[in-house]
């Protein structure tokens, strides 16, 4: 049975159509990424799938249970981890996780056993008696995720799980996600971090203006825009001046700064490479490295959503 089945889902707020006739399925045991720019309809979709908001039209089923008519049974199958770490600052970590267990009607013994196990996994057991008020952002995030897992859900909704976290928290959360997927837990993940989706998700849906623009595995999505090619170049004297000069190269379509490197999009990598080497020779700014790249999931995202950050051209509709 599919974990999530969404058919013709629509949500209107007066004249605004937040979710517009969306259909997709999430298979059991799959990690499904839901990507989209701000205001695309991601949060509204999650609110419908978790039974907080009723859809204006269409239907959504969680393991075959209609989320509108069978809300409570459907919710028992799921854990929800919101983007905001919604923990109670005035309670201790232990009180927080016990409260989550009570809300999900997890029996006392099981609640305490799992609470201990989860706090240990997330590195919070030693601090369990401390009020959450004094926790770092990463610790609160880990506690939020632990609370979302107290009922050992078959389906986990994760909203921006690693956004803005420290390295330790990121690693712990990724390890836990890996473990969950190994155990066959279905994960519905929304994220702005496209690289995270690329390495974590079996399939991704890209939503834009309330509509699904594409659904497929990251690799297959990349193949749909195989024509997008680029060269990533690092220069010995840095890229400050380069950023102003390179858009003048005839074979360059678009320039993007990426850390201490520039990424130059082109239809003709061979010609572009020659132009770059000539530029470096004339300006006595040696090329330290140059790598040709195929399309990334971010390219797919930009291509499908019409977002663009290019230096050259100023065409908001992208490439």
């Amino acid at each position: 049975m599919d974990a999530i089945t969404v058919q013709n889902l629509t949500k209107r707020f007066s004249d605004l159509v937040a979710v517009d006739n969306v259909s997709f399925t999430v298979r059991s045991g799959e990690v499904f990424g839901y990507l989209g720019p701000n205001g695309a309809g991601k949060t509204t979709t999650i609110r419908i799938l978790t039974g907080i908001t009723a859809p204006t039209g269409g239907s959504a089923r969680i393991f075959g249970l209609d989320i509108v008519s069978d809300t409570i049974r459907a919710r028992r199958q799921m854990g929800i981890v919101y983007e905001t770490s919604n923990v109670y600052d005035d309670l201790t970590a232990w009180q927080n996780i016990m409260f989550a267990g009570e809300l999900y009607n997890v029996g006392k013994q099981e609640r305490e056993r799992r609470g201990k196990e989860l706090l240990e996994v997330f590195g919070l057991w030693e601090r369990r008696k401390d009020r959450v008020h004094g926790y770092s952002k990463g610790m609160k995030r880990r506690l939020t995720l632990a609370m979302g897992l107290i009922n050992d859900p078959k389906l986990l909704f994760l909203d921006e799980p690693t956004s803005g976290l420290d390295v330790q928290s990121n690693l712990i959360i990724r390890d836990v996600l890996h473990d969950l997927t190994n155990r066959g837990v279905t994960v519905f993940l929304t994220t702005h971090n496209i690289e995270e989706a690329n390495v974590t998700c079996d399939r991704v849906a890209i939503i834009n203006k309330g509509r699904i623009a594409a659904i497929d595995s990251p690799e297959r999505l990349k193949k749909t825009i195989q024509s997008v090619q680029s060269i990533e170049v690092a220069f010995e004297k840095g890229i400050a001046k380069v950023l102003a000069d390179l858009p003048g190269l005839p074979a360059a379509n678009e320039i993007r700064k990426e850390g201490d490197k520039v990424r130059i999009y082109t239809d003709d990598p061979a010609t572009l490479l020659e132009e770059i080497m000539e530029y470096a020779r004339v300006h006595q700014n040696r090329v330290v490295s140059a790598t040709t790249r195929g399309p990334t999931l971010e390219d797919v995202f930009i291509h499908l959503t019409g977002l663009s950050t290019q230096v050259k051209g100023g065409d908001k509709d992208g490439r």
Partner: peptide, 28 residues
């Protein structure tokens, strides 16, 4: 999935209501 096997939905509702009340007592 963990659930309280002996618990009905009524007991789940009562437990949740009590948990919410306790939480408010501690905090507010």
């Amino acid at each position: 999935m963990v659930d309280n096997p002996g618990g009905s939905q009524v007991s789940a509702e009562v437990n949740a209501a009590w948990a919410i009340a306790k939480k408010d007592m501690f905090i507010y």
